[in-house]
Write a protein that binds this DNA or RNA. Structure first.
Length: 852
RNA sequence: GGGCGCUUAGCUCAGUUGGCUAGAGCAUCUCGUUUACACCGAGAGGGUCGGGGGUUCGAGUCCCUCAGCGCCCACCA
């Protein structure tokens, strides 16, 4: 025997993967319809989390299935430099070593992080292999590979020339902790409890004061106006006059702007264009000065006069104290409001005025919306399409500058004598360049990671250069987490339409978040994080794969249930043992031959397996992963193991057994690649130097539907026998007695075995329990003492059957049902009624026999 | 403030365009060690599909409404 008693995954998985990899089994063949899937590149510096486990499994199932169906299939892997994410990790490391980013040049930092990531990248890739991800490793792309940078630069240049890029001073989201700006989407808004302070500003031309309300008193130092609503009667007469800015003494104007809400606070608002987006907009409208009082280090600037150098929190306290001392603080009240935070360190985001690079998104978004509305991409679930469109409709310009070293440098240089004179140039390794006699200095910032990742599908397939993999663009499907809908998917669509005039993928499937087993979000602080690699080493990769896709629907945040992984583990063992049984029956000298079905079970199992193969394909083509794996699980366990293998013990057909296992392995392979390949390799009549993963999906073979139907009749007879004898104590065995019945007569051994009977005999005058659900005559020779218990059971069945008959009759007596329901349903109802009526007859006869 | 989604067996969830006795895994109970498998086999119990109303011949499925829960978006100082 080549197969051990129990399947121990850890023992086989690495070897099996090595076999695939050595054979380059996951490289595209160039034959068949191209089916390309790109991997959302995992962070090269990180470990895979449970979400990756789901994400990778889903894509791997699709690709393996399509490959077996004969497509030219490829799963293109990648690794992400994860700009900001990795930068944060590396900066922590520097801090631990007592250093900081200012100790090094940009080049030095870049080189250090490169080495840091290179050392870790292999771990992530090993973990992907452990999950059984069948990726074409020779085509792996790192997000800082030359070809990625080249295309990113091309796109930037094209946008520059198309006037889609601009550099400008704008209010950006800035994290003073990480000292970099963020795109709007990278900022988390959180409702916090704060205070609304009321501050009096003395009027200059008039007597009295005007009171404003603010949650950020320290920014008053940078106020350049007071705004009121133009229709506000309370203040109308003051518009155009001036107030004196407390603590600073600056004279500022009162302006009218319809942005102001008359009913909020005092109806008057201080305007700080340098530190608030709305104020910035008002500043633009009214041509106000911008005075920056908070610096990029999170401390007050020199503009803050006596508060200069203080951090924000201290400045706030001091400002409030100073106002109080001047008797200008007119109260405070608690308020709940939404505040932007850094998604990584939770520091409050400062809106700061900075020179940054922006993409004009409107033209890009509009084109993307056109394509989406034309239905060029199918969304699973469909509701997500609206979400993307809505997002694109309100999208504002995209800040792509990041003040970190770990990323793709922005290829732009500025004239050292004219800060508005920028040129595009890719010589980013130079600090300065001379063009036409003028010296230009390099931009220090790098690109937002999502600017390059947003180009991923056409970059990795070399679609712009008509490379080796360009036939896979647009890719077949993008499968990713619904959290990336805006951040990534929307940008891929925009950028792809812009660069290639094509949508980047035909389908998008979103999976949801994987929560813990009590449906709580996994988090380090809660301590409920489940590590996929631990699950893999405990239960096996296949078990994990089957467990994590079970009972899951698209885009829903759902619990991870370890019991499903246990079920997956048990399933793998079941399959393994089925193979062991068949191995024992066939022997190692067996030569594979096309099967000739003989028994009813043979015909039936062919029909079951072929139907399962079709249903799996139909489900997977619609991304119904749970349903597809459910078909495999039930077919293998119930139809094949419980029915067919048991039946085959009575009448063994070696070629059938070999075909049944062959087909079972094939339909299971996309879901549980390791155990199926391991079995395939262990059985010489299959492997013979081949790989299961490169085998084709099962093809139909001939069988008789009539014979298959006869097996179903036998199943219902056996089912009835089991119902009668199922819960009876002891080992007493009964004999089946039957009338003239060739089906039973031809299958007495089968019925005896599966029904655990003493035997089956033909009898003219049978007595005992008549098996009511079998349409012809069959009895069990049950003795009087057990009959009584059974007869109460019969009464229940009789009354239930009467109820069903009543229901069916009511339906058939409803004229509108007969008129409006489809013909075949009405016919079905009639047949059911006839069957139930016949059953009632048999049940009544049985009860009479027992009672006499 | 806006948008989306969820509520089905003790637990975690399926249920494809409305079709008739609502399914799975795990858990529970009974019986069973038949030489592939106790990570097993056979059988059983358990749900008025969150409440209410409507459309329809027919509703877990479509519509309205109420209640509870969750997620996402958002520049009210």
């Amino acid at each position: 025997m080549n197969l051990a008693k129990t399947y121990t995954p850890n023992q086989y998985e690495p070897m099996t993967y090595a076999l695939w990899e050595t054979a380059e089994a996951f490289a595209p063949t160039g034959e068949g319809r191209p089916y390309g899937v790109v991997m959302p590149p995992p962070n090269a510096n990180g470990d895979l989390h449970i979400g990756h486990g789901l994400d990778m499994t889903l894509k791997d199932i699709l690709v393996r299935h399509r490959r077996m169906k004969g497509d030219d299939a490829i799963f293109i892997p990648g690794a992400d430099h994860a700009g900001f994410e990795t930068w944060v990790v590396y900066e922590k490391k520097l801090t631990k070593e007592g250093k900081n980013r200012f100790d090094f040049s940009r080049e030095q930092l870049y080189a250090q992080v490169w080495d840091f990531v290179a050392a870790r990248r292999g771990d992530m890739e090993l973990q992907l292999r452990a999950l059984g991800v069948g990726a074409s490793w020779q085509h792996s792309v790192f997000t800082l590979d030359k070809k990625v940078i080249d295309i990113t630069y091309q796109t930037f240049e094209k946008m520059w020339n198309d006037d889609l890029i601009y550099r400008g001073e704008r209010l950006v989201n800035y994290c003073t902790e990480h000292q970099t700006s963020f795109a709007d989407i990278e900022v988390e808004h959180e409702t916090v409890k704060g205070k609304l302070y009321k501050i009096a500003y003395p009027l200059l031309e008039n007597v009295g004061e005007i009171i404003v309300a603010t949650t950020r008193p320290e920014t008053m130092l940078g106020d350049t106006a007071i705004a009121v609503h133009p229709d506000d009667k309370r203040y109308k007469h003051l518009v155009g006059s001036h107030v004196q800015l407390p603590l600073i003494g600056r004279e500022i104007k009162i302006i009218a702007d319809s942005y102001v809400d008359k009913d909020f606070g005092t109806g008057a608002v201080k305007v700080t264009p340098a530190h608030d987006p709305n104020d910035y907009d008002m500043g633009q409208r009214h041509d106000l000065d911008t005075i920056q009082v908070i610096g990029t280090d999170g401390h007050m600037t020199n503009e803050a006069s006596q508060f200069a150098g203080l951090d924000i929190a201290t400045a706030r306290k001091r400002v409030l104290a100073a106002l109080e001392a001047s008797e200008l603080l007119r109260g405070e009240e608690p308020i709940e409001h939404s505040v932007a935070h850094c998604y990584k360190c939770k520091t409050v985001i400062q809106p700061l005025l900075m020179d940054q690079w922006f993409i004009r998104t409107r033209p890009l978004a509009d084109k993307a919306i056109e394509r989406l509305e034309a239905g060029e991409i199918k969304f699973y679930p469909a509701s997500k399409k609206k979400e993307v469109v809505n997002y694109l409709k309100q999208l504002r310009d995209w800040n792509i500058s990041r003040q970190i070293a770990w990323g793709i440098p922005i290829p732009a240089f500025v004239n050292i004598n004219d800060s508005n004179d920028w040129i595009f140039d890719t010589r980013v390794e130079e600090n300065t360049i001379i063009v036409n006699g003028t010296t230009f200095k390099r931009e220090e910032d790098t690109f937002d990671t999502w600017f390059s990742s947003g180009q991923w599908p056409y970059v990795v397939t070399d679609a712009l250069n008509e490379g080796e993999l360009s036939r896979f663009f647009p890719t077949a499907v993008m499968e990713t987490g619904s959290d990336l809908l805006r951040q990534w998917v929307s940008r891929m669509i925009m950028l792809s339409v812009y660069r290639t005039n094509q949508v980047p993928f035909k389908d998008v499937y979103f999976h949801g978040m994987v929560n813990d087993e009590h449906n709580q979000k996994m988090s380090k602080s809660k301590g409920n994080v489940i590590n996929p690699m631990e699950m893999v080493s405990k239960y096996g990769s296949d078990a994990f794969r089957m467990g994590i896709i079970a009972n899951r629907s698209p885009a829903a945040n759902q619990a991870f249930s370890p019991s499903s992984v246990v079920a997956g583990r048990n399933f793998c063992n079941k399959l393994w043992n089925m193979a062991r049984y068949i191995e024992g029956k066939l022997g190692s000298a067996y030569k594979f031959q096309p099967p000739k079905p003989k028994t009813t079970a043979d015909h039936w199992v062919i029909s079951e397996l072929l139907s399962a193969a079709d249903r799996v394909t139909a489900h997977l083509d619609k991304y119904r992963f749970s349903e597809a794996s459910e078909v495999v699980y039930q077919t293998i366990w119930t139809s094949v193991a419980d029915w067919y293998i048991e039946a085959s013990k009575v009448d063994t057909n070696p070629d059938m057994l070999a075909w049944v296992l062959d087909t079972s392995l094939k339909i299971t392979h996309p879901f549980a690649p390791f155990v199926t390949e391991t079995i395939w390799q262990a059985l010489p009549w299959y492997s013979n130097g081949t790989l299961l993963t490169l085998e084709k999906w099962p093809k139909p073979i001939d069988y008789s539907e009539i014979s298959a139907g006869q097996f179903e009749q036998l199943q219902s007879l056996i089912g009835e026998i089991r119902i009668v004898t199922g819960n009876m104590p002891g080992n007493k065995k009964y004999t089946l007695l039957y009338g003239v019945d060739t089906l039973i007569a031809d299958n007495t051994e089968l019925i005896t075995h599966l029904g655990k009977l003493k035997g089956a005999e033909q009898s003219e005058n049978a007595s005992g329990v008549r098996l009511a659900s079998y349409s012809r005559e069959a009895w069990l020779d049950i003795d009087k003492s057990t009959l009584d218990e059974y007869s109460s059971n019969l009464e229940i069945r009789l009354s239930e059957t009467h109820k069903e008959i009543k229901r069916l009759q009511e339906r058939l007596n409803t004229p509108s049902y007969l008129d409006r329901a489809p013909e075949h349903l009405v016919e079905e109802t009639r047949q059911q009624l006839a069957e139930k009526e016949a059953l009632v007859g048999r049940l009544q006869a049985e009860i009479e026999v027992i009672n006499h």
